[in-house]
């Protein structure tokens, strides 16, 4: 493994699709990470002024893919945490989202379904429903799913890593 002694500009310019220096540096680190996990793949970034979406694309079937995502996406979340730190250190305040094999998209639809089901239950029983602990990314999806719901509202309670969402029926 080569030491990172090169100038950021050099890294950023070394490959195509690298808009900014901060993103180039992040991609390079993630490339090394997936290689070490045993995945032959590509790391690409799609960025706008607010977010940087990094997609890890593996070449075909790969038994190591499960490792990359981890249980409930914990490895992907860990990679995302580090990616956010690296970007912020470069003075880039945008938020990074890391995805592989459309895991996030699949997870998002599952979370939305959980949210809707909890809302239905809260409305039906007239009592609040407490969801299992979730990380901040997952909670955000649930909050957003229900923020326009006329019959329920959501609140987070407890401390990380056991912070949970409560789905509460609105008084009619």
């Amino acid at each position: 493994m080569d030491d990172d002694k090169r100038e950021p500009e050099e890294i950023a310019g070394s490959q195509s699709h690298r808009g900014s220096v901060s993103v180039g540096k992040t991609i390079r680190l993630l490339e090394a990470v997936i290689k070490q996990i045993g995945i032959d793949g590509k790391v690409e970034a799609f960025e706008d002024s607010e977010i940087v979406k990094i997609v890890i694309d593996s070449n075909g079937e790969n038994p190591a893919l499960g490792l990359l995502i981890g249980k409930h996406g914990e490895t992907l979340d860990a990679i995302q945490t580090i990616a956010n730190v690296v970007l912020r250190r470069e003075g880039d305040k945008r938020k990074v989202f890391v995805d592989a094999e459309q895991y996030r998209k699949r997870r998002e639809s599952i979370l939305r379904e959980i949210a809707e089901r909890a809302a239905e239950k809260a409305i039906h029983t007239g009592r609040s429903v407490l969801l299992r602990p979730m990380n901040s990314y997952d909670r955000r999806i649930v909050h957003l799913e229900l923020c326009n719901n006329k019959s329920v509202y959501t609140e987070s309670e407890g401390e990380e890593p056991n912070r949970k969402i409560r789905v509460i029926p609105k008084e009619q």
Partner: peptide, 11 residues
């Protein structure tokens, strides 16, 4: 996060 990534690479 570091531990989780290292664990994945150790498998």
């Amino acid at each position: 996060a570091i531990r989780t990534i290292i664990k994945a690479s150790a498998v």
